[in-house]
């Protein structure tokens, strides 16, 4: 059973803040751009240790992991949320540096954090890992967001690999795959596109933050002990297996 801390990477996202409000656990909150949101939660009485980290390159990820390692806490659970925004771009405009940055934020960071923390969890015979993918990893993805889709697929591969490697060690590794979710992440999209997506959804709306948060909450619960390697569509029926 969990006694240690829950590490939430990308905790300053809307989903991260929503999750922190919902769980009664000691939290190590990684943030990058929105320290105020973490401070606001701490002022509400949440037990949060906040750690800044730039995950866009390997050196930054190493420094973040070093900071985590200096904390005198065991980490039992990891929630991996960091993501760059999905910018529409044609394949002919593919930018290798931007692609690597996206992959680092979403996938390399996960791999390096797993390398550091999962063996420690395995020794304690308990661990929960949950990550946010995208419904674009189910079936046919939309055009023009190759960086985002490919980065999420890289993360998916890491999650499945970690799930199978640590399945016998009391560690479960799962993910949610939400459809378009109404967070600040959509700020760079025109309103009519967001509306069009909601209109096309069988349930007539986009995903809400709470839809994703409650799925994550289950995946990191003590009770989620026999499900691993799963990707749960949180899509209102727009995409599923």
């Amino acid at each position: 059973m969990a006694k240690g801390y829950t590490l939430i990477v990308g905790a300053d996202s809307d989903i991260g803040c929503g999750l922190m409000r919902e769980i009664d656990e000691k939290i190590i909150a990684h943030y990058y751009g929105f320290e105020d949101k973490i401070k606001a939660l701490k002022s509400e009485g949440k037990e949060i240790v906040d750690v800044w980290g730039d995950l866009s390159d390997v050196e930054g990820i190493k420094r973040f992991i070093e900071k985590i390692g200096e904390l005198p806490y065991d980490i039992d659970k990891i929630v991996h949320l960091p993501s760059s925004q999905a910018a529409a771009k044609r394949m002919s405009k593919f930018d290798g540096e931007a692609f690597l940055r996206d992959v680092n934020i979403q996938a390399t960071s996960a791999g390096m954090i797993f390398a550091n923390l999962l063996p420690k969890m395995a020794k304690r015979k308990f661990g929960r890992v949950a990550a946010v993918l995208t419904s674009y990893c189910i079936g046919v993805p939309p055009k023009f967001i190759a960086n985002y889709v490919a980065s999420k697929y890289a993360l998916l591969g890491l999650l499945k690999s970690a799930a199978v490697e640590f399945a016998g060690k009391g560690i479960t590794v799962n993910a949610v795959a939400p459809s378009m979710t109404e967070t600040k992440f959509l700020d760079n999209l025109p309103q009519f596109e967001i509306e069009a997506n909601a209109k096309a959804n069988p349930m007539g709306r986009n995903a809400a933050i709470e839809d994703v948060v409650f799925s994550l909450k289950w995946l990191i619960s003590d009770e989620c002990e026999f499900m691993t390697g799963a990707v749960i569509p949180v899509t209102g029926g727009s995409n599923f297996y």
């Binding site: 025109p190 309103q191 009519f192 596109e193 509306e195 069009a196 209109k199």
Partner: peptide, 15 residues
Amino acid sequence: LLVAMEKKFLIKFSV
């Protein structure tokens, strides 16, 4: 095109 028109004419389109 639609985003450029929204910016130019200071309007917002719905779906």
